[in-house]
């Protein structure tokens, strides 16, 4: 093999070791394979036995993750279009202000929000958790939709309107198919942010709202690494399964409309 060939394989091996070894470590620990202990299915059997609490936590996290995606999409679509189509100089500043919540450390406003939610009775409720998560995650959707709208020629919309389509019809039949890939990308990030968050769910949910992260963290804190690893593997598999499903669905929908994928 030539010298660059060997170098390339070297790079690949380093990358594979660094990024797959941690996942392999999770698998090994979940099976209790480690120095000085007997491999066992204890962790997986425990989770199977606890399927009610474990399932409730997973379903709750999935529910607020997916609801956050829907809520954020609904809230961002119209503002994204307004920003993308505006040629005013102040728009850039407005966009920056609207995108800021994703960059600020969440604790800087979350503690104030927590106290307001106490007064509003939103603390320890599912709705409160959904609101605060949507609030930290919406900029990712907004940015993705702005980029998507910037790539749509305004002439499409004008054509549709000239041909007599109403505003909603234009959106559903003309703009939405173009927006879908961007919305899917933004939605994936929004889902990941909401689904993976520990602090905000713990602060606003107060341990009352079941959550996957709140279920996992006590096992890590009490150093029960076998069960924590098994839970982490599920944690990794669920979003991957969702992304694959989303990708298939998107391809089907766009193909059905005769658009290039």
């Amino acid at each position: 093999m030539s010298r660059p060939g060997v170098l390339n394989f070297g790079v690949l091996i380093v990358v594979l070791v660094f990024f797959t070894l941690p996942v392999a470590l999770l698998v090994l620990y979940s099976l209790n394979v480690r120095y000085g202990s007997v491999p066992s299915l204890r962790a997986w059997l425990y989770l199977a036995g606890q399927y009610r609490t474990f399932g409730a936590a997973l379903v709750s996290s999935l529910a607020y993750g997916l609801s956050a995606v829907a809520l954020v999409f609904a809230a961002c679509v119209i503002p994204a279009k307004a920003i993308a189509r505006s040629s005013r100089s102040g728009t850039a500043v407005l966009e920056a202000v609207l995108l800021t919540p994703a960059l600020l450390p969440s604790i800087t406003f979350a503690i104030g929000v927590h106290q307001l939610f106490i007064r509003a009775g939103l603390v320890d409720t599912w709705l409160g958790v959904l609101l605060v998560l949507s609030f930290v995650a919406y900029p990712y959707m907004l940015r993705a939709l702005i980029a998507a709208y910037e790539s749509i020629d305004p002439a499409y919309e004008q054509c549709a309107r000239n041909l007599g389509a109403g505003m909603f019809q234009t959106f559903r039949l003309v703009e939405l198919p173009f927006l879908l890939p961007g919305a899917a990308a933004g939605g994936s990030v929004v889902f990941l942010v909401a689904f993976s968050d520990y602090f905000l769910v713990f602060l606003i949910g107060g341990g009352i709202v079941p959550a996957y992260t709140s279920y996992l963290v006590p096992f890590i804190r009490s150093a029960d690494y076998s069960i924590a690893s098994a839970l982490s593997i599920v944690f990794l598999l669920v979003p991957i399964a969702l992304f694959v499903a989303q990708d298939r669905l998107l391809t089907l929908v766009l193909r059905g409309r005769g658009m290039a994928v």
Binding site: P4, L7, N8, F9, V11, L12, V15, L16, F18, F19, T20, P22, V23, L25, L26, Y29, L192, F195, S196, D197, Y198, T213, L216, V217, I220, Y225, A228, S229, S232, F235, L236, P239, I240
Partner: peptide, 30 residues
């Protein structure tokens, strides 16, 4: 510098992007 075939395999570098922070914490502890 990686040729396409190897690059596909190297995409595993994105794994930490999907991992939640609490899981990253667990991995570091392990």
């Amino acid at each position: 510098r990686l040729p396409d075939r190897l690059f596909t395999a190297a995409l595993v570098y994105k794994v930490p992007l999907i991992l939640p922070h609490v899981v990253i914490g667990l991995i570091v502890l392990l």
